[in-house]
Simulated scan of single mutants.
Amino acid sequence: MEFGKEQNPEWLYTLVQKNNDKLLRKKFSIDASYQIFFGTGTEKTLEAARNAAYSDCLNKILAENKNKNAILNSMTPVYEYWELDDKKLYTVYTIYSMQNKK
């Protein structure tokens, strides 16, 4: 857990465990016109876990949106949360928003 960041935030729990983004939207003032995506990665190093979380998030975005170039240009990072467990594995949660295209 990075120094100075909120430990075990409720908004992250409701997003990841309940697939409910209402608390996240409120905390970060994210308008309803934006889609929320999150990815999770667990690895031996923080950088590897970050990469795995980003890849997981990107795969979820690509599954819902077909225009790959537009996706990469419109992804906005919202937050990253990480923790280290007893087995010395890092788990990273990365959250991005993307404006809905009409």
Rank of each mutant, 00 (worst) to 15 (best):
T76I: 15
D56V: 10
W82Y: 15
Y90L: 02
Y96L: 08
K5L: 04
F37Q: 07
D86Q: 11
I95D: 01
N20I: 03
L58A: 04
M1Q: 11
N100A: 10
N51V: 10
K88F: 05
T45P: 10
N59D: 13
F3I: 15
M98Y: 01
A70E: 07
Y34V: 08
A49S: 13
K101H: 08
L72K: 12
R50S: 07
K22S: 14
P9R: 04
R50K: 14
L58I: 14
S55L: 13
P9E: 06
A32N: 15
K18C: 01
K5V: 02
D21Y: 03
A48M: 11
T94A: 05
N19G: 04
S33I: 09
L62H: 06
E47Q: 13
T94H: 07
F28N: 06
T42Y: 02
E83M: 06
P77E: 13
T40C: 01
L46E: 07
N100P: 00
Y13K: 13
Y54C: 01
L72G: 04
N67K: 15
N59Y: 05
N69H: 10
Q99W: 01
Q35Y: 14
D21M: 01
Q99P: 08
F3A: 12
V16T: 12
N8K: 10
T91N: 02
K5C: 00
Q35V: 08
I36Q: 04
I71F: 04
I36T: 02
Y93G: 02
K22D: 13
P9C: 05
E6H: 00
K44V: 08
V92Q: 05
F38R: 08
T42P: 01
L12C: 00
Q7K: 13
F37H: 09
W11F: 13
A53F: 09
G39Y: 07
P9W: 02
A32C: 01
V16H: 08
A49L: 10
P9I: 03
N100G: 05
F38P: 00
M1K: 12
K102E: 07
N59A: 09
I61Y: 05
T14H: 09
W11T: 08
V92P: 03
V78M: 04
K22A: 12
A63G: 05
N51P: 00
A48I: 07
K44N: 14
M75C: 03
T94L: 14
I36N: 07
K87N: 14
F28K: 07
V16P: 06
T40S: 06
L62T: 05
A32H: 11
Y81W: 11
Y81M: 04
I71G: 06
Y79S: 10
Y96A: 03
K60S: 12
K101R: 10
A63Y: 07
D56I: 12
L12M: 05
Y79P: 00
M98Q: 14
S97P: 00
A52C: 03
K66C: 01
S33G: 11
A53I: 11
K22I: 12
S74T: 11
L58W: 08
T45K: 11
K18Q: 10
E6W: 00
E47V: 15
D86E: 12
L24D: 02
K44E: 10
A48V: 06
K88T: 05
M98E: 04
R25P: 02
P9H: 04
